[in-house]
């Protein structure tokens, strides 16, 4: 533990340069209580239909695709259509999210569990969508195992339109109000990509090659 003591001692000595008046502790407590956010960009403050439109525009700008579903019972059919269109096998891997319970999957082989090494199609529910950047917000747990987000070659994500938020500020406010505190929060903006070979962007680096969102009315 001497490492801890030595580091903190050096840091404390150096910090004394800044706070000779000894008000530091109050300033820290105040900041953690008030969490000031004096600059919130306009694009993180959209409301109503404008918010939905901006979310969809930015999602597509990030190379994701999107479809609308009016009722969750329609989801299996919508997924079947996407699978055919993309020439994918009729399989889907998902977690135990309530929203997927009791759905009639028909000819689709639907399984529940974590991501495996070969996972052609995975399905998750996003806890929120962020209109600021067209971002999906997923939280880990048995409902939506985190590995499904990264191991699916094609990742399907269901998002309720009512779960759209404008920007980071109202997102975090909601997390706090609900006491939502998962092990991981995954912000996902489009399918995986890399520019490491020849500095040319290619989709599908390690994670999904395609990301498709079903926006639920």
């Amino acid at each position: 533990m001497s490492g801890r003591r030595n580091i903190l001692e050096r840091v404390r000595r150096a910090a004394a340069v800044h706070r000779g008046d000894g008000t530091g502790a109050d300033a820290v407590a105040e900041r953690l209580r008030d969490r000031p956010a004096p600059v919130v960009p306009q694009q993180a403050r959209t409301v109503g239909q404008g918010r939905v439109t901006q979310f969809l525009t930015k999602l597509e700008a990030a190379d994701a695709t999107v479809g609308r579903v009016s009722d969750i019972a329609e989801l299996p059919k919508a997924i079947a259509r996407e699978l055919r269109k993309r020439n994918l096998p009729a399989v889907v891997r998902m977690g135990k999210d309530d929203i997927f319970q009791g759905l009639d999957w028909g000819s689709i082989e639907a399984s529940v569990g974590v991501g495996r090494v070969e996972e052609p199609v995975t399905l998750s529910r996003a806890e929120y969508g962020l209109a600021e950047t067209g971002t999906l917000v997923l939280v880990s747990g048995p409902e939506n195992p985190v590995t499904l987000t990264f191991l699916g070659e094609t990742h399907f994500v269901v998002l309720r339109e009512s779960d759209l938020r404008s920007g980071f500020e109202d997102l975090w406010a909601d997390f706090r109000a609900r006491g939502l505190d998962p092990r991981t929060v995954n912000l996902v903006t489009g399918p995986s990509r890399s520019g490491d070979i020849g500095q040319t962007l290619q989709l599908g680096a390690h994670g999904p090659m395609a990301l498709h969102v079903f926006l639920l009315d």
């Binding site: 990030a62 950047t133 971002t135 991981t184 995954n186 912000l187 996902v188 903006t189 489009g190 994670g207």
Partner: peptide
């Protein structure tokens, strides 16, 4: 505007 993956652990 945002990286593809931003993960809070």
């Amino acid at each position: 505007e945002a990286a593809v993956y931003t993960t809070f652990s």
